[in-house]
Amino acid sequence: MSKKILILSQSYLESTTDQVCQWMDYLKIPYRRLNGEDFFRFQQLSDLPDNTETAVVWYRRKIAHFPAEFSLKQPDINSQYTLKRFLVDEFNGLHSFLFHSIDAQKWLNDPLSEKNLNKLQVLQLARRLNIHTPFTEVVTTKAKIMALLEQYPALIVKPLSECILLEDTERRAYKMLTSTIDQKSLSAVPETFFPSLVQERIVKKFEIRTFYLDGACYSMAIFSQNNRKTTDDFRNYDNHRPNRTVPYKLPAELEHKLDQLMKILRFRTGSIDLMVDMQGNYHFLEINPEGQFGMVSHPCNYYLEKKFARLLHQSVLHEKEIHQQPENKENAAPATVFSEAE
């Protein structure tokens, strides 16, 4: 079997993967798409993709929903949650084995770097590369917040990890949002609290979402409705009106620094969030290495799905070149604990 492009994704709600696959079909590039749901049909470990048959891996998604039911004899909210968590961990135990069994350099993004990505570390790296970031601190007391409000008119608080969705017993969903702390809202802040990430609040002219693809930056400006200078009564706006999204070109110097940042993190693709303040300064916010790019590709007419398909193809060709060197011997040896599936 020839060396293949391996795409790890999920079977539902994944139009980005679908479109990249459709481009590869059209361009006659062979690939194997493995959805998380497929793991539920495997009979043995050797059904997993093998290192020797894999030339390049794009890890997009893990799974949408487990195609398996579970129940407890004594239903109890806490245990339900614990069990759900357990099943996620169980699934990850199997899925993330691929991170080890397939050579790290074959992954578009280093899977372990992606898995362990830390917001504070990324901000620190960015600052080291002279990319401007908003003032960031982790605090535990109201006193410290008050001191910071002397320096900055307002702060925002957001998770160190990722925003989550909460559900109550009636299955109503509560979405976690970034919220503002200023003199007015200070009274709601307790004297001491759980370590929390705060940042200076940037008054934005617009936001930028950049999709980084193997050294190139494809950027989009997002003008959100509540900061368009149209009228002073924003309540006139129709809530269904979407944000305006248009192509944008970052300054070459900033693109160069972002390229360095992605290379240090060993990411060949990913989404980068930035903000532009009223004076036109850029503020780096964060990186989402698995970021979906349809929301940048379509509004800006970038055809990123096609470019992505080409990148995967080039990576296979490149991989073939490497393996035509003397290392061929090593290549022929049986890989780790697996035997060939066929």
């Binding site: 368009r228 009228t231 305006r244 248009v246 192509p247 970052l250 096609k306």
Partner: peptide
């Protein structure tokens, strides 16, 4: 134009707001 949100006013024409590439292609 501003009220229909077809554009906005700034103290310059932002050159970073580049033209859209008007290419067309399809995977079929």
């Amino acid at each position: 134009f501003v009220s229909r949100e077809l554009g906005f006013i700034d103290d310059r024409i932002l050159p970073e707001l580049t033209a859209m590439e008007l290419t067309w292609d399809r995977f079929a």
